[in-house]
């Protein structure tokens, strides 16, 4: 048999085992990148083959957790894609302002930067106290970090540039205090964000959202799982609500597409139609 074929079988068995034992379902993740990351994990964990890793993986939760950390990609930043946040500010917020109170869901929030960016933006637009955010992720390690709201100070320069490009109205330094090599986000940003575990592959909807963001998460999923997520978002969103995807994700080829109109064309902001 050919090495790749053996490995593909091993990976399938491993993901099957992980699903059955731990309830985390990675079977519908796009093969190429999960394979890459699994191989990376394998090399770091010291096992020779996936078959060899399997036995301990299925018996020791700590081994599984290292796998989980290895295969979820948590790269994020404040005001990632500044043009997107500028468009939210200019084209989405005016609609949100017409509600007395809005609910927002960040699905796949990683370490929270996207939610904190949105909090800054909404506060600057005069919506402080009029929103609640649910920021969810499959990975509890990143959620823990997210709720702490502490970032490396070395990132602040880049984040400040993003903030300015995104149309920030104040000074980015107003939103954190520097402590040695850390930047601690101000409590005012945290108080209306709830961080919670949620797995898009198995868990259910969140009701009555005005805005759902799921950026750079479904890009790792196979078509069937993408469709599942989109159904989830659709049933979570109010009519007239907004769905924001990553810059390289689109509704164009999705069944759900016709229920949405695209607001800011290349920036993947969609509005759910009424009726």
């Amino acid at each position: 048999m050919k090495p790749d074929e053996v490995e593909d079988v091993e990976i399938r068995l491993l993901l099957e085992g992980v699903q059955r034992i731990y309830g985390y379902d990675f079977r519908d993740y796009a093969d190429a990148s999960i394979k890459r990351r699994l191989n990376h994990w394998l090399a770091e964990s010291g096992f020779d083959t996936f078959s060899q890793a399997q036995s301990r993986l299925l018996r020791e939760r700590s081994v599984f957790e290292s796998l989980l950390r290895g295969i979820t990609v948590n790269v994020t930043e404040m005001f990632r894609d500044p043009a997107f946040f500028r468009a939210v500010r200019e084209q989405v917020v005016p609609f949100l302002k017409t509600y007395p109170f809005v609910k927002i869901w960040h699905a796949g929030c990683a370490t929270g930067e996207e939610a904190y960016s949105m909090a800054i933006l909404l506060n600057e637009e005069g919506m402080a106290g009029r929103y609640r955010m649910y920021a969810t992720d499959i990975n509890e390690t990143v959620l823990q970090k997210a709720s702490e709201g502490v970032m490396p100070i070395t990132e602040m320069q880049r984040f400040t540039r993003n903030y300015q490009k995104a149309g920030g109205r104040a000074s980015f330094a107003d939103y954190y205090t520097a402590r040695y090599d850390r930047a601690i986000l101000s409590a005012a940003l945290k108080k209306d964000i709830v961080f919670a575990p949620h797995n898009l592959a198995v868990d259910g909807e969140f009701g009555e959202m005005n805005l759902v963001l799921c950026r750079n998460v479904m890009i790792y999923f196979k078509p069937a799982l993408k469709e599942r997520c989109l159904r989830l978002f659709d049933s979570s969103l109010l009519a007239g609500g907004f769905l924001c995807l990553g810059l390289k994700e689109s509704l164009e080829r999705r069944k759900m597409g016709e229920r949405y109109e695209e607001l800011a064309a290349p920036l993947r902001i969609y509005r759910k139609r009424y009726g």
Partner: peptide, 21 residues
């Protein structure tokens, strides 16, 4: 490949993108 994304080939004969490090 688009700026800022890795380009990968999937078994089924289509492309995928990733924002991995």
């Amino acid at each position: 490949a688009p700026p800022n994304y890795h380009l990968l080939v999937e078994r089924e004969g289509f492309l995928s993108l990733s924002a991995d490090p």
